[in-house]
Design a protein around this nucleic acid. Structure first.
Lengths: 195, 195
DNA sequence: CCTTGATCTGAACGCACGTTCAGTTAATAA
DNA sequence: TTATTAACTGAACGTGCGTTCAGATCAAGG
């Protein structure tokens, strides 16, 4: 046997991505085999190599696409002049965006050490660009006397860690709706910066 | 060849633990082989099985010991009556304790999915007990009107995520000393609870 | 000094891994 | 209808995996 009925790269490619993302998130990159991914897609393992040069590229592409998606989505958000409003926008956006794609977020945070040094550097640079957006808001608010904070860079790390932490416990089926969580975390963020 | 000169379980056991911890933290549990651990210790792979029934137990024991250590250390801390002072004690303790053992912390957070369901439940229970200490402080401070917070449980998760985040960027060789970081994060924590 | 038990070696087990590739079939263009 | 290309199969490659175990050597107590 060979080419199968209905097979098409425009269909198979996203299914491979989805299978890899789901399996990497559940079991971890190192614990997932190419054969498992192929089985989830419904092809033989060799077919995967029409779509990726190797296993690591599968992981790298997932991360880069996730971070590109994140940056594009942030750029599409309004950026109010007022630092407090800008901070609220960022906090709410961060929670909403991350809660909507827990698998991609999980992988992007947990599998960094499985990247080659060059790939790691690229991913880190993308993440840095995102963090810089928050740092800019904090620096502006501090300069305008609205925020009572110390080092804006440290504050950035603290806020992002706090907000991203939502993904470790939030479940759609839990007692709180996401918009309630969003408001609770915005309240905490606001107080954290002295507002 | 067989038993080697100077070999003793009291020496080999901790060296196996240390090697496993170091390698798991650096490369991840699934990516580390028993042969790598043995090589780091300087024995053949078979010798490891005098000390652990299998690979997973090595991971589980590291996690449990870390969490036991964490609870014992917290219990050894003074617990002031005043909620604000108690919170300061907790925040500073958390940062100090975690910064001192980054490998154990990293493993305890990243390798949960490599545990069997029973082992996972045990580790989760231990972590919950630790979190409960912070929740108790927050609940008391809220009842006494000192803290301006919402749900104490959510606030617990937010604070712990923020504080633990220090480990992702702090380096001994960086521009900030740990006691400076400690104070910065305590300032943020205090403001977060409305103090 | 001798015995006993602790400690480790060296080899082996079957299995799964990532990757490659010649060959085969389906889709598509001419 | 035919020729071409896209998509996939099936089998194979060498390697490393976790775990087991009989046997060899060392440490320690009497």
């Amino acid at each position: 046997m060979a080419r199968t009925a209905g097979s098409h790269s425009a269909l198979t490619a996203p299914r491979i991505r989805a299978a890899a993302q789901s399996l990497f998130a559940r079991h971890g990159f190192a614990a997932v085999s190419m054969r498992q991914i192929a089985a989830e897609v419904g092809v033989q393992v060799g077919a995967l190599y029409n779509y990726t040069p190797d296993k690591q590229s599968l992981l790298f592409d997932l991360m880069v696409d996730h971070l590109d998606d994140l940056m594009r989505a942030l750029d599409a958000e309004p950026l109010p002049e007022d630092p407090m409003q800008a901070l609220e926008g960022f906090a709410r956006f961060h929670i909403r965006h991350h809660a909507a794609r827990p698998e991609a977020v999980f992988i992007a945070y947990m599998e960094l050490r499985n990247l080659s040094p060059e790939n790691f550097a690229q991913v880190e640079a993308l993440r840095h660009r995102y963090e810089d957006r928050l740092t800019a808001i904090l620096t502006r608010g501090q300069a305008e006397g609205q925020f009572r904070i110390g080092d804006p860079r440290i504050t950035t790390m603290a806020i992002i860690a706090m907000l991203t932490g939502v993904n470790t416990w939030f479940r759609e089926t839990g007692r709180l709706r996401l918009d309630e969580v969003e408001t609770m975390y915005w309240d905490m963020t606001r107080q954290l910066v002295g507002g």
